[in-house]
Amino acid sequence: MTSTQENDILAAGTRAPDFDLPAGPDQRVSLRSLRGRPVILAFYPADFSPVCGDQMALYNESLEEFAEYDAHIVGVSVDGPWCHLAYAKDRKLKFPLASDFEPKGEVSRAYGVYDEKWGTSKRALFVIDAEGIIRWSYLSPIDENPGAHGILGALDEMKEHAA
């Protein structure tokens, strides 16, 4: 695999590129609309991965914890809105899944987490502060659920800084 400069995952300190994507058939989610509170972006390769280790199901279960930081989470993959809808229904997800579908992978590319070979987003996490600055990013091995501890650690650190 080649790793060029533009392919590198955006690092802490970078302004998070804005996006405005469909989140289901008749909704949209933009980073701008979430400004003023921390945002967790979870890029992942595809809807419907094996259940027990399912990253999105884990985050769904963690919403209470994220809410304690007033943080919003958005999942992002290249799956279309109808696929996201079916997946969200199946897993009873209560947070938005954005479709980086048209032009395909544009937002994933902007964040440096597009996998050219597979044509999907990589598995990557970003914690963005209320001003829209990336405060933590992490590129996970594609087949490993990165869990929530990195996200919670980053949110903790942001809270300490703010205090």
Partner: peptide, 13 residues
């Protein structure tokens, strides 16, 4: 228990 697990890097069961 669940919260402690999240903090510890539990990523599935």
């Amino acid at each position: 228990d669940f919260r402690g697990g999240l903090r510890s890097g539990v990523n599935g069961t």
